[in-house]
Design a binder for these strands. Structure first.
Lengths: 225, 225
DNA sequence: CTGCTCTTTTCTGTATACAGAACTCGGGTG
DNA sequence: CACCCGAGTTCTGTATACAGAAAAGAGCAG
């Protein structure tokens, strides 16, 4: 593995795990010393993270971790919505049925196992495998690249909303609808089920964000009227 | 301007203008000498171009200009379709009417001026201004970033199909429908008009590609049955 | 004549030195 | 007391040196 990859992975994980909160500043020499590398691979890692949008460049004065405001999350989902609908739609027409029949069974089983609170990690892992199976089946490189670029930001957004059992159960039911559409080879069903899932997911995240920041909650309530 | 920006812009333009055809190899030292720079900014430019997908890295052995096959163009539009529909939809609900009323008038006028073959460049410039106005109005950073990343590839695809007057006239009418939807504040109309425009645009490009490569043309004809 | 292996060459990946730009902080001035 | 100017410091941006890996080519063996 190249040193620049190491640096990229380390910095990315640190940002995603919240070690460096939004607004935290990064300097090249500082990180080079921390990770025991020279500035060259650090520079490359910074450039990649900035291209992804996790860092923003302070023209000539280093980088800071990008903000993840309520508005940013809304914009994130304005893109995610159409990407995942298109992916679901294409996967429904291009999938290998066997793969998704198996996944459907697993999601069915998850409806039960989510009763136990320690089944949560297994559920996250199941969702990750569904994503991977869809990535495999979609056969559309640009679409794949676009959703891949979004995922780190989604991971950060997810961290803001601590999932509760009810939400996870609802999420499992929504995923089941998506997989059903894929198994049936029904692009519209898959896309619409995805739309529903993401609208609810966004609502859940925004509710958590608004609870943390009362002012924004009031704004949101006004907008909803 | 930084040297790495210079290198990036120069290499990008050379690729987009077809100076380096798909498959052409790039070495760091070679380009550093050609552009009179050291390897460091060249490296940075290569990394950016590879992230965009214009170059592909040959793990440890330089870069080559990426291919732009028929299949790649189809995949390009599988993403472009949903991005531009979403953008049109959001713009229709967020636009400043005055800006787009003015653009509508210009597209109306273009229907006339496109009769003269030397009005072509002016038309391309008008389309570019519509894009810019929509970029301005969409107010959705991730969506904007996604379409921006696609544009170099679209420029390459467009080069494959030499536009004829009939296609440009049809394109102007299609754009007029999109702008109408935006002016009317009708997201659905704007999105559907965009969908129509892009489907026809893809068809036009693929026809040109297939004419250049007869085998692919036969394949396409078979698929169409 | 073909295929394998070893040598040579050339390239990337990394470290580091150097220069110039931007910020900071202190002193002076209005 | 506030503001401005300038020296100093610290950072990025660029050039370059060096090491290691991969490919190309020559030579030898089958």
């Amino acid at each position: 593995m190249r040193a620049s990859d190491t640096a990229y992975a380390a910095l990315r994980d640190d940002i995603l795990h919240g070690e460096f909160p939004p607004g935290a500043a990064f300097a090249e020499v500082e990180q080079a010393q921390r990770l025991n590398l020279s500035r060259t691979p650090i520079r490359e890692a910074f450039a990649r993270l900035a291209a992804e949008g996790l860092l923003v460049a302070l023209s000539g004065r280093g980088y800071v971790v990008s903000e993840l405001s309520r508005q940013t999350i809304v914009e994130l989902f304005e893109l995610r919505q159409v990407l995942e609908m298109q992916i679901a739609s294409l996967v429904a027409s291009r999938r290998d049925p066997a793969v998704f029949v198996a996944l459907r069974d697993e999601f069915s089983a998850a409806l039960e196992s989510l009763q136990h609170p320690n089944g949560h990690d297994a559920y996250y892992e199941l969702v990750a495998r569904l994503d991977a199976a869809m990535d495999d089946a979609v056969q559309s490189r640009f679409l794949l690249a676009a959703i891949r670029q979004l995922r780190p930001h989604l991971a950060r957004a997810r961290r803001l909303a601590k999932d509760n059992p009810e939400r996870l159960l609802a999420s499992a039911r929504e995923h089941l609808m998506i997989v059903d559409g894929i198994v049936d080879g029904d692009p519209e069903l898959a896309a619409h089920a995805t739309s529903i899932h993401l609208k609810r997911s966004l609502k859940h995240i925004l509710a958590a964000v608004d609870q943390a920041a009362p002012t924004a909650a009031a704004d949101s309530a006004n907008l909803a009227r």
